[in-house]
Design a protein around this nucleic acid. Structure first.
Lengths: 152, 152
DNA sequence: TCACATTTAATTGTCCGCAATTGAATTCGC
DNA sequence: GCGAATTCAATTGCGGACAATTAAATGTGA
């Protein structure tokens, strides 16, 4: 047989884009780990802080929409950030269903220490900013198409 | 100020390739879920099965190297696959430190049911095979550069 | 107004992912 | 051949992820 059936080829690990993305996510996580250890943050916690550094005092829901995470993930994570005194959780007075997340002074201050992280990641990526931006845009477009399918 | 300082821009969530990869991995996982539910597999379990369908009777270590996972992840996962009677775990007679993983007849048979999965993913990705292959190759190259940094 | 649906967080249970440790088997240096 | 280092799997503990459920607050329609 000159070539295997297409369905067989698609089952091969090395042909699957999802595994490429999956394993790249883990590789990123491992590169981030020592950098974030210095901030005493995990990667998902760092993502939450990025959201808050852009806009403070937002409901849990909004953070979840931004990061594609639900309350089952965020509630315990935010409690740990509160225990670390980086954020405060308070019920909204207008809508008591909502929990508003607010940075503490300490949480704000951490932003400065975090500024050098992206540069280190850039270096580890070992390619140009232009290439990375192009890849990022493609991956985001793919992610959004996948999420669109889920919304149907 | 005409434009913000570069370090500030790099801290923005939308500018981070790692978040693109992270969120794309989750989106893939959510698309895979209903497909894999029919096989009673989780995504990491599906990855292990892909490895075994390519080559059977391999040590745990080899599976870990292929998937970039360690024994802390694989040992319980493989025990669940064994409980589901898809694989068998046996100590190697030549080197008793190794655990060899072998498909059962049921595990082999599942391959047929899994054949249609990649096609469904392809459809959800909503782009051409050529584009996907190109993206996959770029992401794999990036992953390998990141892993290379870790190996130093 | 009052039943009903919707929105939002929190909780519970299951399954990854990984660091750190332990213990057993093997290999290496001498 | 023997003690030390290495390899490999298992275990423990912690922190995500997410489905499913619960409960409370809010909104809506007759």
């Amino acid at each position: 047989m000159a070539r295997k059936h297409a369905a067989e080829q698609l089952l091969r690990l090395d042909n699957q884009i999802c595994f490429a993305v999956y394993s790249a996510a883990h590789a990123f996580n491992r590169v981030y780990k020592p950098l974030l250890d210095r901030l005493s943050l995990t990667y998902p916690q760092y993502l939450v802080m990025l959201v808050l550094w852009e806009r403070d005092n937002v409901p849990l829901k909004t953070i979840g929409e931004r990061l594609f995470l639900d309350s089952g993930t965020l509630t315990p994570l935010l409690k740990r950030l509160e225990a670390a005194e980086l954020i405060k959780r308070t019920r909204s007075t207008e809508d008591e269903r909502q929990v508003l997340i607010e940075l503490t002074a300490e949480g704000e201050a951490l932003r400065d220490k975090a500024k050098s992280v992206p540069q280190s990641i850039l270096a580890a990526s070992a390619c140009s900013v232009g290439e990375l931006v192009a890849m990022k845009d493609e991956i985001v477009a793919l992610r959004d198409r996948l999420n669109a399918v889920l919304g149907e």
